[in-house]
Design a protein around this nucleic acid. Structure first.
Lengths: 333, 333
DNA sequence: ATGAAAGCGCTAACAC
DNA sequence: GTGTTAGCGCTTTCAT
């Protein structure tokens, strides 16, 4: 059995409260007594029980972290940011994954709700979970995406629109006149921020919108369809790492030279971008900073919603080698 | 304020114990009463407090997960495995990172010890942490590495030796007679399993051992040194993803053609292996399975050490395009 | 089938 | 300074 405060008190020959004072650092304790208590505690390998403490103080502690998938590089980076902030804050973090499934997400949120957490940062998958209740209880902040159904929950986001804009300007500056957006919304559905920013930034050039879902197969199919059927597009911007992977893979299979035959850029920088041949140009989103920021938002105003739309974090256009002047164009250098 | 069991009892007009029975599923409860309680609970948005429950039942709950770095692909996969197992077990997981720093690791372990955890799975960084105490308290299982100082703590590992052996056989079968191991121990230090397996498997061929630490700079320097000063080696096996990255980068910079000029293979499959050009041959270690296994080990025998050396999990040689017959050799196809 | 009461390990008044 | 006491929200005998 692990030692309790009572054991320590007995061993040190003091009252139970004194031991408590020593460890919680609250009341005053004589130096000699403190030493005796500490010694006894060490001998018994005593450690205050966080749960009991929390029960008494009614203080919530810890940060919940809800991610679609830890193994995804973006999510992992974001987690690293949350972890870093948590460490500074002296909080622990409880991690849970949803697989992007709203039903699982609801279960996860339910589970987290019983955990006396100080708050949760989540990359939400769907509206199914009772985010409102969760927010009421301990404070929630979204990261990466927001949910229209929960406008009062603050969301830390990257400035994707600016990122796309910078990328498109770069591409058109290179001379591209027909560029594709890989990962558009389905024909009927509402276009996302990236897609809108893309169209808006394109100006005179032609936008080729290629719908794709975020699954390996869909990505691959979309990329293949695009690259095969539209030899006229000279550049493609892939919306997300999966689409990016699909694009370079398909280009290679089709024996398209990058960037000579087609320029490729991806939204979301990936660890292997440098290793690609040629290295992939990307708009990097500050995943780690986003995680850190989200956790800090929680701490700053525990339990209550914040301004729902903190300023988006800046993205950065990382120019590497995968984009060049269009085929046959004499790009101005 | 969040509702307590008392509130629910009052609202439902029943005793506090009845509510407890309904939620813990222990004692018998009349169907009608149960309904009333459930209704009251729903109305009050009541959720049993996990901490209080744990306090009473003295049942440890939850799995601690200690990783050097969540953003590392191997660690992230391992985490995914732990998470999956935890979900099946109905446990939550508390994640903490050490940055590979033994001092931080000690702090993390100390912190986790106060958390009434059912156990912790750790990819240990050093001996500083009081793993023995942690193991005594709740059960610890290591993953990926073991610590010689704690032979009683079980460790879930991959069969690296077999993986290396398979790789070396593949390479020598291709005709290589001089192959380098990138990531050997420092001259004085004891060689690791991989390095030993490498030497043993090489048979008649010459082993070129290149020491390197696991840092970006060291990896890069070692790779550059090797590829520049030893034009006679025709194949290099990189021990870990960092070294692998360094090898392909340096090869590219030196305008070495892979695999025509030099074959490259890496221990630890990486997500971008397919995207490399040519795709990287690798020995894949089952990170996710390791995580899952570690967590399950904890559950099977909570609180007490297991056979300290469960059978290592099998690795798999994933042959892609980065290895071929050596320069000038007429490899038998 | 249900309620009353006794704690789990801890902190926070309140005495001394 | 230090000890005593009353709970925090829950589970669990033990009665009823």
């Amino acid at each position: 059995m692990t030692a309790t405060i009572k054991d320590v008190a007995a061993a040190a020959g003091v009252g139970i409260a004194t031991v408590s004072r020593v460890f919680s650092g609250n009341g005053p304790v004589g130096a000699a007594t403190r030493e005796r208590v500490l010694a006894a505690a060490r001998a018994l390998d005593y450690r205050p029980d966080a749960a009991a403490r929390g029960l008494k103080t009614r203080a919530a502690a810890g940060i919940g972290l809800v991610l679609p998938d830890v193994a995804d590089p973006f999510a992992a980076e974001l987690a690293a940011g949350v972890l870093a902030a948590a460490r500074d804050l002296g909080e622990h973090v409880v991690l849970d994954v949803t697989g992007g499934d709203p039903a699982r997400e609801a279960a996860v949120v339910e589970r987290l709700a019983g955990q006396r957490l100080g708050g949760v940062v989540a990359v939400p998958a769907g509206q199914d979970a009772d985010w409102a209740a969760a927010a009421r209880a301990g404070g929630v902040v979204f990261a990466d995406r927001a949910l229209a159904a929960f406008p009062h929950i603050p969301a830390v986001r990257a400035d994707d629109a600016a990122g796309v804009r910078a990328l498109v300007e770069y591409l058109t500056g290179l001379g591209h006149r027909r560029v594709a957006f890989l990962g558009a919304a389905a024909p009927g559905a509402a276009p996302g921020v990236r897609e809108r920013a893309f169209r808006d930034a394109l100006g005179g050039a032609e936008a080729v919108l290629v719908p794709a879902r975020t699954s390996r197969d869909s990505a691959y199919g979309a990329a293949a369809g695009l690259l095969q059927s539209r030899p006229d597009v000279t550049a493609v911007v892939a919306s997300g790492r999966l689409l990016g992977e699909a694009a370079v893979l398909v280009a290679r299979e089709l024996d398209l030279r990058v960037p000579a035959d087609v320029s490729i850029a991806v939204i979301d920088d990936v660890p292997w971008a440098e290793l690609c041949d040629p290295p992939l140009t990307a708009v990097a989103r500050p995943a780690r900073a986003m995680g850190r920021r989200a956790a800090e938002l929680l701490a700053r105003d525990p339990g209550r919603a914040r301004p729902a739309a903190p300023a988006p974090l800046p993205t950065e256009l990382v120019v590497r080698g995968s984009c060049g002047p269009p085929r046959g164009a004499r790009g101005r250098p």
